[in-house]
């Protein structure tokens, strides 16, 4: 009887030790997952009625809509230039490149000053919605159902407050203006 009790006590003791080890491993695993969940800061904005986003790392500045000076000889998508504290920057109508119609200029309209691999330019948008961190895992590949030219310019899609946001690739957006560099 004593032996049986001793074995039983040993089993309980072993299980406890195993449970403790497993718990420690689970906690460690959970910590690793938390660290490895990479996040990317995104700027979410609207053109027309579509929610779009760029990675914040490609945006130098978000500017309120200011006077855009027309320069003759430019294609329609190039709206003109702005003076940003002494620096002259071009302004592109992003909607024109995406096949979307811009909302009329309003107080909430903005210019995203963006820096691609080769090009730096302002991008006119109708409204900036949010600047937020999104886990990379939550960004999915762009669906085939996206219409062109949006599909070719999308780097992914994700959900924000129940709505689908299309993440754009800035270099691909600029390349639509510079077809010879494709």
């Amino acid at each position: 009887m004593d032996l049986e009790r001793t074995e039983s006590a040993t089993d309980v003791s072993d299980r406890d030790k195993l449970d403790m080890l497993l718990d420690r491993r689970r906690e460690a695993g959970a910590r690793i997952v938390e660290i490895e969940t990479a996040k990317v800061k995104l700027v979410i904005f609207v053109v027309g009625e579509t929610l779009l986003a760029f990675p914040a790392r490609v945006l130098v500045e978000i500017l309120p809509l200011t006077t855009i000076h027309f320069v003759p000889g430019c294609p329609p998508a190039l709206e003109g230039i702005i003076n940003v504290r002494g620096d002259i920057a071009s302004v592109v109508r992003l909607g024109d490149l995406l096949g979307m119609t811009h909302a009329p200029s309003a107080r909430r309209s903005a210019i995203l000053l963006a820096r691609g691999t080769q090009v730096r330019s302002g991008l006119r948008v109708d409204r900036v919605v949010d600047v937020m961190d999104v886990t990379e895992a939550s960004i999915q590949a762009p669906p085939d159902s996206l219409p062109e030219p949006l599909r070719g310019l999308a780097a992914g899609v994700f959900e924000h407050q129940g709505q689908v946001v299309i993440l754009l690739d800035l270099d691909r957006v600029f390349q639509t203006l510079l077809p010879e560099q494709r």
Partner: peptide, 16 residues
């Protein structure tokens, strides 16, 4: 700006 210079159809427009 680089984008404007690359896309301008008017070589007489040189700068601002």
């Amino acid at each position: 700006p680089a984008l404007l210079e690359a896309l301008s159809e008017l070589p007489c427009v040189r700068g601002l």
